[in-house]
């Protein structure tokens, strides 16, 4: 009962602000609905149509590929940065601020800055690579490299995730390390047996959140892919971008709702898998 009492504000909000729109979306997904007029029941037609829609399949595949890249990379990068910025050093506050700052740059600005930096001929990045005699990728003009470019942009904005690990690192009792030091554990052993296990609750959070985020990733691919066209060669046609176009450019709200529900089910399945397996790798304080 006490548990429910503590949960009740959220539950009220859930009933008012979430349950209704979610059910409405579910209903729309079985209808032909344009935002105007009455939705027309069409049964499973929207879902059936999606299986034949090559643009949808492309969007789905692109998003899966991007998710497979961005989720592990952002976890590894966020943890590495947090470890680097955890220990005292001269100018630590400045370093932390620099790494954190990109996460508050608006998406339109981020896209613009990186499109300049990644210009194949005149951009700073290829300029630097040329200096070291390294090969210069075509970045945004090539379908494969375009995904890498967007990946770079999202990793640049990792600062807020890094912050979570920084916060979690504060909670590790120091005596664990002292005991380990007395036992003569190496730095690597301390990392594996003390630090990382303590970070696993946050890792689970970041894992699930990154999954959801990457399926809903919209602003940057929308802008970089030139107003949602997914350029070059459809490589930036991401799930949320195509969903948005169906809803607001083509007024196919029913179709977009079906897309939303497929996304819901796929991400939910991945989330449940993550939570189910989490008791094997996530360590909570006893």
């Amino acid at each position: 009962m006490i548990g429910l009492a503590f949960l009740s504000p959220w539950l009220l909000g859930f009933l008012a602000f979430t349950l209704y729109p979610v059910l409405a979306t579910l209903y729309y997904s079985f209808t032909d609905y344009s935002l105007f007029g009455t939705p027309q029941w069409v049964g499973l037609d929207n879902y059936r149509e999606l299986t034949h829609d090559s643009t949808f399949v492309q969007a789905f595949t692109n998003t899966l590929v991007f998710t497979a890249l961005v989720v592990p990379l952002s976890i590894v990068l966020a943890i590495s940065l947090a470890l680097l910025l955890h220990r005292p050093a001269r100018g630590l506050a400045a370093y932390r601020t620099i790494i954190f700052a990109p996460s508050i740059v608006p998406a339109a600005a981020t896209a613009a800055i990186w499109m300049w930096l990644l210009n194949p001929q005149f951009g700073l990045v290829n300029g630097a690579l040329r200096l070291f005699g390294a090969p210069t990728p075509p970045w945004l003009s090539d379908p494969d490299w375009a995904k890498v470019s967007v990946l770079l942009m999202s990793l640049w904005m990792i600062g807020s995730d890094m912050l979570l690990y920084l916060a979690a690192l504060q909670d590790i009792p120091v005596d664990y390390y002292e005991a380990a030091a007395i036992d003569g554990a190496s730095a690597w052993q301390r990392l594996r047996s003390i630090t990382l296990p303590h970070l696993t609750p946050v890792m689970l959070f970041q894992l699930i959140n990154a999954l959801i985020w990457s399926f809903q990733y919209f602003s940057i691919p929308y802008i970089v892919g030139q107003q949602g066209q997914g350029k070059p060669a459809g490589s930036l046609n991401f799930y949320a971008v195509y969903l948005y176009k169906n809803a607001f450019s083509y007024l196919k709200m029913g179709y977009a709702s079906a897309m939303a529900w497929i996304m819901f089910i796929v991400v939910m399945a991945l989330t449940i898998i993550a939570i189910r397996t989490s008791n094997r790798w996530v360590h909570y304080a006893k």
């Binding site: 548990g3 949960l7 959220w10 859930f14 602000f17 979430t18 209704y20 729109p21 979610v22 409405a24 979306t25 935002l35 699930i208 959140n209 959801i212 809903q216 919209f218 949320a240 969903l243 948005y244 809803a247 607001f248 709200m253 977009a256 709702s257 939303a260 996304m263 819901f264 991400v267 939910m268 989330t271 449940i272 939570i275």
Partner: peptide, 21 residues
């Protein structure tokens, strides 16, 4: 179950729920 319910509310993109809301 409540925890899953909480998480599930993160799964639908904002621009889908914004119309009914």
């Amino acid at each position: 179950a409540a925890f899953l319910l909480v998480i599930s509310t993160m799964l639908l993109p904002d621009f889908v729920t914004i119309i009914p809301l």
